[in-house]
């Protein structure tokens, strides 16, 4: 199970960014996980909770957007949902010149955090 390694990578990246921005607590993290990313969302959510312990992310909510895999045939321009297991040859013309449109995402989209109040407002405060 590599979801623990992935969760640690997510926490590490966000922890770094949060410290840099002097955030005191992270309330939620939004990830995009493609159907073909080779990741089990439930396992990732479980690992994430453990990985957050004793960091600025402790207790943060994980929001996973699952992205369906879609492909497009270059010669005949047909597009289709690849399904799982994926079909990456064209269901129309049978061709093999396929372009993947989505499905491999494994991305931290956004983070919601609390900034420490600062004595002097900066341009980052709204």
């Amino acid at each position: 199970m590599h979801e623990m390694s992935l969760a640690l990578a997510v926490v590490d990246q966000i922890d770094g960014a949060a410290r840099f921005e002097r955030a005191t607590a992270v309330s939620s993290v939004r990830l995009q996980v493609g159907e073909l990313a080779g990741v089990v969302p439930d396992a990732l959510a479980f690992s994430f909770e453990l990985a957050c312990a004793e960091t600025v992310l402790e207790g943060a909510e994980l929001i996973i957007e699952q992205v369906a895999a879609r492909a497009r045939c270059r010669p005949c321009t047909r597009t289709w949902e690849t399904g799982m297991p994926p079909r990456l040859t064209c269901p129309g013309c049978g061709g093999a010149d396929t372009e993947l449109l989505s499905g491999r995402e494994l991305q931290i989209v956004s983070v919601s955090w609390h900034d420490a109040p600062r004595p002097q407002p900066t341009h980052q405060e709204r």
Partner: peptide, 16 residues
């Protein structure tokens, strides 16, 4: 204050 930050970083960025 609470704010939302667009990070847009690949989870595997460090490995890659």
């Amino acid at each position: 204050m609470c704010r939302v930050v667009d990070l847009q970083q690949a989870v595997l960025a460090k490995n890659d």
